[in-house]
Amino acid sequence: MSNDDKDGIRLSDDQKRRQRGRSIAIGLALAGLVVLFYLVTLVKMGPGVLDKGMY
């Protein structure tokens, strides 16, 4: 028995398609945020980042 059946909720094919679309959009937004923070970090740290001492 799937979780859907246990909860008494069964999504129609159209609802599954829309849910998948929303999931992909959220995934892309999160991936975009990762890239954005990576780029901002590089810009903020600047080219001198490797010159800093460890201690």
Binding site: Q15, R18, Q19, G21, R22, I24, A25
Partner: peptide, 9 residues
């Protein structure tokens, strides 16, 4: 809820 398409958002 849970009915909207990406375009709706």
């Amino acid at each position: 809820g849970g009915q909207g398409e990406v375009g709706d958002y």
